[in-house]
Amino acid sequence: MNSKKLVFIHLFNDRSGSPKVLSQVVKAAANNNIPTEVITSAHGDGFLAGVADVQSRLFYKRSENKLLTLGYYLISQGLLFVQCLKYRRQNVVFYVNTMMPFGAALAGKLLRIPVYYHVHETSIKPNILKRFLRLVIEKTSTKVVFVSNYLMQEEGFTKLPQVIIHNALESEVEKQYRVKEETGFTSLMICSLKAYKGVMEFLALAQRSKDDKHLSFTLVLNASLSEIDSFFASIDIPGNVAIYPRQTDLSGFYSRADLLLNLSRPDGWIETFGLTILEGMSHGLPVIVPPVGGPTELVRSDIEGYLISSYDIEELYSAVSRISLDPKKYKTLSDNALSRTRDFSLEVFESKFSTLFNEMQHDT
């Protein structure tokens, strides 16, 4: 019997966490000899570029104007719905990544094609849109994959089969345990250029640390140079901060850093997993993360790092300063961080998806 083709649908192909995880799912399907197709936006530098047997383009645009972005989004879903009608009478399964591409789910329901959802997010605004997207999932989905226990508790569907498959490192951990030798101490944060990701809190922490000459701060943003210049045009950037635009390879930043920060505002964006947190830990970096959401499943306070609110600048400063001056404590946190990443290996991830793929092949 020929394998059903898996058609993966993702809205915006950039270098953020959800398309990166989906690229791992696509590769896992290929390793199981399953035909694959990806439908996503035409942004060629994203993680989904060229990962599938077939690459199909999805119309999608963004704008600084929120109403215009919403309009583009609704148009994209209408076009996606029509685009997915071509799979009528084809032996396929739709795999919808994030809650957003509802056009594919509606087409799948109409055509009686199995629809699987991979849910990464909980902070969707406005709330009426989130309620609509949840309704679509309830009415169309065969099964829902969640990236963390926290997310399933927050967004679970009582009437649908659901499973938790934690995100995984891109490759098996082969990093050496880290020894702090440099005199300086660099705190790294990697995030989208959004206020709710804690960008301003990062600058506030750097400003608070300006008298500690050994402390420096590196901010890598999923944005272009022009977007960064526009965002920071009227903002005073402390002299101990270096800001970089979107990168294709972050390994050098992890290697040069001493600590990884995630300062997402808990009232604006709750991290449902935190893939960059795991990547940093795989390089032996202790981490400071919010005390809520998915990061609490990765990080245990005073073991791999610390759970501190982004709004508590004094506590953040105290933690950074303290471990920067305590090599013995630093090494303990670093060793623990690296050890912890072995619980989130690609091998475990692919094994769980192999089981899911087998279900899909027998889904009618």
Rank of each mutant, 00 (worst) to 15 (best):
V292N: 05
M100R: 05
S63I: 05
N31M: 11
E138P: 02
Q90G: 10
I39C: 08
P245F: 05
K329V: 11
L74K: 01
E314L: 13
E174H: 13
Y150R: 00
P238C: 05
N13Q: 08
D363F: 05
V119M: 12
E121K: 04
K109N: 12
T140I: 04
V51A: 03
L215I: 11
S123H: 11
K86T: 12
L48E: 02
T276Q: 06
L338C: 11
L135R: 14
E350Y: 10
G17F: 03
Y72C: 00
D267N: 14
V199H: 01
G17P: 02
L22V: 06
L278N: 00
S321K: 14
K180I: 11
F232Y: 11
G252V: 07
N33G: 09
S230I: 08
S354P: 04
I128L: 15
S345R: 07
T98F: 03
A337M: 09
R246F: 07
E347S: 15
S318I: 02
F202Q: 00
K331C: 07
D236W: 01
G50E: 03
K180A: 09
V292L: 13
L346F: 09
S16K: 07
A257R: 02
V93I: 15
V54M: 10
G156W: 03
L169V: 06
P19S: 09
Y196L: 11
E304F: 01
I237P: 06
T140M: 04
L160S: 08
H362W: 07
Q361C: 07
S187R: 05
D343R: 12
C191A: 14
L225V: 08
V289W: 00
D45V: 11
G156Q: 03
D302L: 05
L188T: 03
L160M: 10
V119G: 03
I228E: 06
S216Q: 14
R112K: 15
G71E: 01
A242V: 10
V241G: 08
V136L: 10
L225G: 13
F344V: 02
L275D: 03
